[in-house]
Design a binder for these strands. Structure first.
Lengths: 228, 228
DNA sequence: AATTTCACCGATAGTACTATCGGTGAAAAA
DNA sequence: TTTTTCACCGATAGTACTATCGGTGAAATT
């Protein structure tokens, strides 16, 4: 009710923010195909033509959106990392390692969903953003896996570490989506699953690193013989 | 050169197939946003208006495309499963288990890419197809994990099995994409990674299934203490 | 041979969106 | 107070696509 007197630039900035938020909402709820200056402007409460007061075109808005989204995701990651460092025990810290990107993703579900879509879509303006974000997350995982004790010293092991990180990253995204959809309500449990997945993979690296080829590690009868 | 005389229905069917193939190619190379009756008809070598001789609208074509694509993927999966059953040793069969969806996906890269995109896109006509395909693959993985010795008898374990299957499925897709992009040329290696990932996860299930809570399984010092 | 069918064509009405234009009024500057 | 600035407006030209129409000729049927 009590509208504080806004300066012209403040009002403009506010409109600009409304446009970005409207675009993000439409992007998330209806998809990039449904995005148009008509819808965004209407949702922001201005005329369609006024869209161009704030952005050169839709591409321009999406560029800004991706930049801000990337910064927000990086911020969430930083914060999660900081919190993880304050954890008392090693075990909690270990699990936190896999919980960090999980939480960062879940803190911005729209950005996660948009990123997953745009990543493989050649017609998406947000593809660069998606690819860069995915790479950042994969690197995060690779660094975490390396911190768990494994050092990649030849090309094959480096590639394997990258493959594992990419797999873990994909699993992280899948579980984050499942969590957001309500199927996996407990984020700790998601982190547990990811921890367990990575554990098996690191074991492979260590086995394969010490011997020339050891496809059947002894003393690991986990593949129970219930067949056909 | 030597054009065999085609009957009218044969010629029509051939045109229809050209339309579907053109749509698939555009979908894969340019994305759903770039798909239009103009482009598809032109690529198939007919007038835009003739598109409607074969399909009610673009949605109709995409429905057929998804049905055929689904059938093709299921077929690839069946064939891979059949081949896996012929493998001599248990170990090879174990790895084949994780190679099956990998190969099925790589056999139809366009469908894989389209599926990954459409899955989280509310504006995509192919979303149903993508969601169903993903569910089928997840179920495949869940069945395979169960066949490795683990039986889920309470709700928590069933959910965990599902989570693991979903994670493995996501990792499978990620590695398949990486393989198609040339980063991971060896499909066996991809299968090895997936096998290793699943191994760790199954271990978690078994540990958690026997005791009430056992976050630190003894005798598994794989988390080496190299900490920042 | 005569007739019918129909896959394909060009033309076009209708729809949705983009991006530019000149105009307006209130805030800001002079 | 006078002038300037500029965020916003409505109108509109331009573009791209959809889906329908009547027409055409060759294949299929009679």
């Amino acid at each position: 009710m009590t509208t504080p007197p806004l300066s012209r630039s403040e009002a403009k900035d506010q409109t600009r923010r409304r446009l970005i938020r409207a675009a993000l909402a439409i992007l998330d709820q209806e998809g990039e195909a449904e995005l148009s200056t008509v819808k965004v402007a209407k949702a922001a409460g201005i005329a369609q033509s006024s869209f161009y007061v704030h952005f050169k075109d839709m591409q321009d808005l999406l560029r800004v959106l991706a930049e801000e989204g990337g910064e927000r995701l990086r911020g969430a990651m930083r914060e999660a990392r900081r919190k993880a460092r304050e954890e008392p025990g090693d075990l909690d810290r270990h699990r936190e390692t896999f919980r960090i990107p999980l939480e960062a993703s879940c803190r911005h579900p729209e950005l996660l969903r948009i990123q997953l879509r745009a990543r493989h879509d050649p017609s998406s303006s947000l593809r660069d953003f998606a690819v860069r974000t995915a790479a950042a997350y994969r690197d995060h995982h690779a660094a975490d896996l390396a911190a768990l004790g494994y050092t990649a010293d030849d090309e094959r092991d480096r590639r394997r570490l990258e493959m594992i990180a990419e797999g873990i990253n994909a699993a992280t995204n899948a579980l984050a989506i499942g969590h957001l959809e309500g199927r996996y309500p407990d984020l700790d449990e998601c982190a547990d699953i990811l921890t367990a997945l990575s554990r098996g993979a690191l074991r492979l690296l260590r086995h394969e690193a010490t011997g020339p080829r050891n496809p059947s590690p002894p003393g690991e009868p986990e593949a129970g013989g219930s067949e056909g």
